[in-house]
Amino acid sequence: MTPIARMQDPASRRSRPRILEAARRLASAEGEGPLTMEAIAASSGVTRRTLYNHFANLGDLCMVACAPLFAHCRAALPLSDTAPRPVRDLLHALACDVVQLQRDPVHIALKRTAKLQSLTAPQLRHAYSVQIREPLRRIVAGRLSASLPGLPSETLADEVLSTLEAANRLDYLVRDLERAGAGAVIVDMLLDRLDLQADQPRRAA
């Protein structure tokens, strides 16, 4: 059957969504290892031949399956903001925006998928870095540069993201951040990690 004929075949049209849903479900499942075409075929109720009629290889399948997840996460990236702010206000705003993205269920699923499938579908891990991680890093660096001119904003951005990723794994810190007017614990972590003070750009050496 030619590719055009497959697209027009009703059975083929019905099987493709099942395949993509099975791939997304298996790829992001806790405790699952790297995907296989056999596992996806079994979970979606199609034969391997049907699977390969739709997708040339596992990498192509993963990229197509995760396309909606990438689109959602790009839309959920925090906005760029170049308005100068006091250091404590700046870090609190960054923490709120970045943690909100990190706690998005779709982002959690996409990040887990990209990590788990880095061996079987390395283009997925690369796409996550290019489409999500690097844009987020540039947004954070831009905000830092606006409020802390003269400091290495790119390096500080890496520190902010790594600190917030660690804080996000500690639920009590995230809950502290989410309480109205709070967030002191995470902001203090950032001030200490970045070697900053709330009332001046950088501590004296």
Rank of each mutant, 00 (worst) to 15 (best):
158 D>H: 10
81 D>Q: 12
85 R>F: 09
124 L>Q: 12
52 Y>P: 00
62 C>M: 10
12 S>V: 01
168 N>C: 14
149 P>G: 07
18 R>F: 00
107 H>T: 03
2 T>N: 10
17 P>R: 06
202 R>G: 04
196 L>M: 13
93 A>P: 02
144 L>G: 01
112 R>V: 10
195 D>P: 00
139 I>N: 01
119 L>I: 11
7 M>E: 10
116 L>C: 08
113 T>L: 09
141 A>S: 14
119 L>A: 15
161 L>G: 02
102 Q>L: 15
195 D>K: 06
31 G>K: 04
92 H>T: 13
37 M>G: 13
19 I>Q: 04
108 I>P: 00
63 M>H: 09
26 L>V: 12
10 P>A: 12
205 A>H: 08
65 A>S: 12
137 R>Q: 11
147 S>E: 04
143 R>L: 07
200 Q>P: 01
113 T>H: 06
140 V>A: 05
171 D>I: 02
135 P>E: 11
70 F>G: 09
137 R>N: 03
168 N>L: 00
63 M>D: 11
71 A>F: 07
64 V>I: 14
77 L>T: 12
100 Q>W: 07
106 V>K: 08
115 K>L: 12
171 D>V: 02
11 A>K: 11
58 L>M: 12
118 S>A: 14
109 A>W: 02
197 Q>K: 09
48 R>A: 02
85 R>A: 15
38 E>A: 13
71 A>S: 14
114 A>P: 02
131 Q>Y: 10
9 D>V: 01
67 A>W: 04
20 L>Q: 05
183 G>T: 07
32 E>L: 02
93 A>E: 14
163 T>N: 03
